[in-house]
Simulated assay, not measured.
Amino acid sequence: MNKKYLLGIANYSNWVDQTVISWLEQINDEQWEKEMPSSFSSIAKTTLHLVSAKRIWIDFWNKEPKPVYLSREFKGSKEELLEIWRKIMADYLRFVTKFPEHEYDSAVSINIGNEVWSMEFSQTVLHHNNHASYHRGQLVTLLRNAGFSDFSNTDLATFYVKINRA
Rank of each mutant, 00 (worst) to 15 (best):
V16E: 04
I43M: 07
R144G: 08
F121R: 09
E30W: 05
K3W: 00
L139F: 08
L93D: 12
W61I: 06
L81R: 01
S149Y: 09
T158S: 11
S122M: 07
Q18Y: 10
E80A: 07
A157C: 12
A107D: 11
V161T: 15
S152C: 08
Y92S: 13
L50R: 03
E35Q: 15
V125D: 00
K4P: 00
S118N: 10
E83M: 10
Y134W: 10
T19N: 02
W32M: 06
I58P: 01
D150M: 02
S106N: 07
T154L: 02
S13I: 04
K63D: 09
H131E: 04
I21R: 07
S109L: 12
S38C: 13
Y104T: 05
L143P: 10
I112Q: 06
F95I: 12
F151D: 02
A132G: 10
K3Q: 04
D59T: 06
W57Y: 14
F40K: 03
E30V: 12
A44I: 09
T46S: 11
Q18V: 10
A90V: 04
I163C: 03
V161Y: 09
S13P: 04
D105V: 06
R94Y: 13
V140A: 09
S22P: 06
Q31N: 09
S77T: 15
K162Y: 08
M119P: 00
L126E: 08
F151M: 01
V96H: 05
D29W: 10
K78R: 14
A157I: 15
S41K: 13
R72G: 05
P37Q: 14
V96D: 03
N114M: 08
G8L: 02
G113C: 01
S122A: 13
K87F: 09
T158A: 14
F121Y: 11
E35L: 15
L70M: 11
P67G: 09
I43P: 03
D29S: 14
K34C: 11
H135D: 00
V161N: 13
Y5I: 13
P67S: 10
I88P: 01
L143N: 03
A107S: 12
K87R: 13
A166Q: 15
E120C: 13
A10M: 04
F121K: 03
